[in-house]
Design a protein around this nucleic acid. Structure first.
Lengths: 170, 170
DNA sequence: ACAGCCATGTAACTTGTTACATGATTTT
DNA sequence: AAAATCATGTAACAAGTTACATGGCTGT
């Protein structure tokens, strides 16, 4: 429910129209997570259905603006004050893949690890380059840093897996 | 598509029935990602629809087994040999939350960070305890380690955010 | 004229998820 | 006898995602 809440947060500053939400969402998270414009409208409809936002007619240039409701503000406040729990994080595809490769004996685990590490390393290089070229605001910077931290953690974990597997084989 | 492929991997060892897939999936990933039994059957139906598996009648105890098809094996091989790309990772709710909190001026970012750090720290303690008590196999061990690595990275990132924000305010 | 951005929206689809219904077998 | 586990499945829904249709406005 990240997109719902993200859009709700943007709407809490004041009325917004669909296209604007897309732009502001992407501006806040950098180019990291593009947001399909179609999804903005479907999400707005669903939030309206759930009483979190209200259509506020058209602005001076005829654009269809939405306003956050009181229930929407409560939901948003709840979102900000409740930490993300371990249990509601999405399943990690890479981890499942490696677990399955290890469990099955006939899959070449080392090959999977090497392939992934190459890809992650390349991603890390791109990220570092993006980091150097960065001119934008605080939010975008922290989002990019998060991606870097995660990629580094993944590298460390892959190294760890390799070491554990080598040790077990001996 | 982690569950699909995970189940496909299990089916590549030989025919399996639904309940068995649930058990083996949970055994491989430890207690980390429980798999709802209902989902096993819906996923099996969808995989059958997509030609990845075939119903293989009933086994000697009358259980409805499924068999992987040639297309299924190809799909699985592609899964193992293709690294997980940066772009197809799910959006991180915490990162979006913090980005939105930073972008909006009226949200107390520091409070959000502190709340999350407390929760993550507690999770980390539970994980360390689970790690000590661990008796099971290689796959489960690596899955648990991954969770720990990620939680640690999150803590570091939260510290980093706090530092950057403090520095900016000065 | 044409490309590209601004702007709105709908239809159809995907995975993942849960609630429910049903019954057999096993353990306590 | 009761509780737990084994076992299968369906119905309904959620969020996210994409493809498509439509049109105005702007810059080259």
């Amino acid at each position: 429910m990240s997109i719902r809440h993200g859009m709700l947060a943007l709407l809490s500053w004041g009325p917004r129209y669909g296209y604007q939400l897309k732009q502001e969402f992407e501006a806040s998270t950098g180019a990291t997570w593009p947001l399909n414009i179609g999804q903005v409208y479907t999400t707005l409809s669903r939030m309206e259905r759930d009483g979190l936002v209200e259509p506020g007619g058209a602005d001076d240039q005829g654009r269809a603006v939405y306003t956050i409701t009181e229930a929407g503000r409560e939901e948003l406040e709840r979102w900000f004050s409740t930490p993300v729990d371990q249990s509601d994080r999405p399943r990690d595809e890479l981890v499942i893949k490696l677990a399955m490769a290890v469990a099955a004996q006939d899959v070449d685990v080392a090959r999977v690890i090497v392939a992934q590490r190459t890809a992650t390393m390349r991603a890390l290089q791109d990220l570092t380059r993006a980091k150097r070229a960065q001119t934008d605001g605080l939010a975008q910077r922290l989002v990019l840093d998060s991606t870097i931290f995660k990629a580094e953690a993944e590298q460390r974990w892959l190294d760890h897996c390799e070491a554990v597997l080598k040790e077990k084989k001996a």
